[in-house]
């Protein structure tokens, strides 16, 4: 049950983030959309590794048998993905600041060099 709710929440966050990134005119809010997209993807990945009733994969006692743990591999992947997400966000913000210094605006419609 928890896994299904988490997957639904993650999908909604993905859709909201992508919607925000595609329809906004403001670059900063497009980047906010990308971070929300990130969070949604992470939720989906963690819930794929979730096992109902499982505990965190931290073994306090070697002789514990019969405890069900959740899958550690998606957690390790998401751990690195969050840090990379910060790097990418910083990168996008740097570009936004540089574009602002060139044009004096953050509205995406004002950047006409790449229009066709």
């Amino acid at each position: 049950m928890i896994g299904t709710i988490a997957v639904s929440t993650g999908s909604l966050l993905v859709l909201v983030g992508l919607w925000s990134a595609l329809t906004n005119r403001d670059i900063i809010r497009m980047i906010v959309g990308f971070t929300i997209f990130d969070v949604g993807i992470h939720l989906i990945m963690i819930s794929v590794g979730y096992i109902s009733g499982g505990t965190a994969p931290i073994i306090s006692n070697l002789s514990d048998i019969g405890v069900s743990y959740v899958d550690p591999v998606p957690q390790a992947l998401v751990l690195t993905a969050i840090v990379i997400g910060l790097g990418i966000t910083a990168f996008m913000l740097t570009y936004a600041v540089n574009m602002y210094e060139k044009k004096g605006t953050l509205e995406i419609d004002k950047f006409e060099e790449l229009k066709w």
Binding site: Y50, S52, P57, I59, V73, Q75, L79, T80
Partner: peptide, 30 residues
């Protein structure tokens, strides 16, 4: 929802503490 671990994860959890000595399996995977 999964009810059993996939093979790789089961290996990590069963053999990990004895092989690498780390209590936190996520750490030993990372």
């Amino acid at each position: 929802e999964r009810t059993a671990l996939p093979e790789v994860a089961a290996h990590y959890i069963e053999k990990g503490p004895a092989e690498l000595g780390s209590a936190n399996i996520v750490t030993s995977v990372v």
